[in-house]
Amino acid sequence: MLLNFNSLGSWKWALVAITTLTSAFLLLPIVFIAALSFGSSQWLIFPPPSWTLKWYGALFSDPRWLESAWTSLRIALMVTVLSVVIGLFAAFGLVRGRFVGRDGLRALFMTPMILPVVVLAVALYAFFLQIGLAGTTLGFVIAHLVVALPFSILALTGALEGFDKSIEDAAILCGASPLRAKITVTLPCIGHGLFSAAIFSFLTSWDEVVLAIFMSSPTLQTLPVKIWATLRQDLTPVIAAASTMLILVTILLMLLAAAVKKGLKA
């Protein structure tokens, strides 16, 4: 009765109304930002008096915004590669290994995900000040790697647990070396896991704000840090343009992920 949409009676319309309103609430800020980024009003008047591309012009002609976008991309790509490789090795150990404390180790690997990120940010900042990594690209990559790795390990252990190991053993019986069997048989079979590990790692680093604020220096800023610093001064529509670009990247990656998932199922 209550779990059948058509026999809900008047309750059905209440649920539909709440869901519609909530969807509007969730969509509102995103649509609003995109609209403002094309609006001509410096003071973010809505609806905008007229439409313009000048904020995008300002965004793309300012070397500091471009520099920070390039920094974001560079760091996110390094994090992605390291996170997938280290995560892959860890997943092999966690799924195939037989050793005492394996479940404890798995839990340890997941802790950076539940710890408040501000605690990690402050702790790493102090540590990097002492060992000379504060404000460096390497420090940035390490900090993002610590929070991206759990997602990567989660995706890859899941994929590896779903993979029938006897296929790999068969390849070895047919004469392939264990390493060759892994590369040519196992890796292609867990491709979807590798792919989601990569997307999650990339987005974790690309969108991360809190660690980035502590890892940045005046000469090393990712896009979120640049937005954060600008936001503390004023609400200029250039931020709306930058945010719209970030949202666009997210949508493209989500569509890509959905397409790959669909392709794998077909």
């Binding site: 090795f89 290994g97 050793f99 802790t111 990690l120 540590f127 610590v146 790795l149």
Partner: peptide, 24 residues
Amino acid sequence: PTGFKPTLPALILVLVFFVLPVAI
């Protein structure tokens, strides 16, 4: 025990850049 070694890079990363800084 078998199969422990592949987890070492991740373990070192987590110990050095997570557990240690938070403990300090």
